[in-house]
Amino acid sequence: MMTSRINPLLILFTVVVYIFLMGPLIIVLGASVSDTTYLTFPPQGLTLRWFENIFEISAFRRTIITSLELAFLATGLALLVGIPAAYALNRYRIKLPSWLSTVFVLPILVPEIVLGFSLLKSVAVGMETPIFLTLLIGHMLLVLPYCVRVVSASLASFDFSIEEAAVSLGSPPVKTFFTIVLPNVRSGVIAAFILAFITSINDVSTSLFLTGPGISTLPIQILAHVEQFFDPTIASVSVLLMLLTVAVMAIVERTLGLTFLAK
């Protein structure tokens, strides 16, 4: 039987990397169940009252809903703009100037703080838009580059003669887009959705400028909470967010298989 010698240092290195990756998660998980009024690790005692506490604090309840609404709407709208944009950029790549695709990446080239501040000045104050709408505009801008880039990557390997084949067989162009093009870039669209959704849910810098009286997002609320309290509620919220992410990934894994993300 063949055996291969593995360098013990390599094993040590691998273990260290894993600890490095998983350590923070374990610490947060531990702190969230600690029966103390301050954040500590390892946990002392065992309680779930900090999880209950999240839902007792109305600001958390409200901001969780706002954050979810915002993430769904911003991602949805960004995809509505991003998918056609990515399609056009790829379909007419030869005809279009090359800088055009760069335009769609600009929002991530600008530091988020600057993006937030400019939106505050020009949209929120300048145009006196409602807070939620301003947040939505900000988040959509923030996630649009991910949508365009990821869907583009998927379309880059799409053979547009397939589209022509469908058209030649009698399928009108718009119908062809939905029956032939979209099903073949499905994985890209889902990957874009997940990336955009997570970006929106986690955003602090841009949202910081755009939240206002009565309307805030979860990360901003966490920030506000930490300024006043040092109890493990924050750890519980974090665990909740982790579970949400794991749940999304589990659904994806069950329905599509995770390998599609690597495609």
């Binding site: 003669s161 397939i162 022509e164 084949a165 469908a166 058209v167 030649s168 009698g170 399928s171 009108p172």
Partner: peptide, 20 residues
């Protein structure tokens, strides 16, 4: 006439089958 109304059978170099 738009392409989809021309009723022409086409065979492409790279086959262009619908992968899904």
């Amino acid at each position: 006439l738009p392409a989809y109304k021309r009723d022409i059978g086409l065979v492409f170099q790279n086959y262009a089958l619908f992968p899904h």
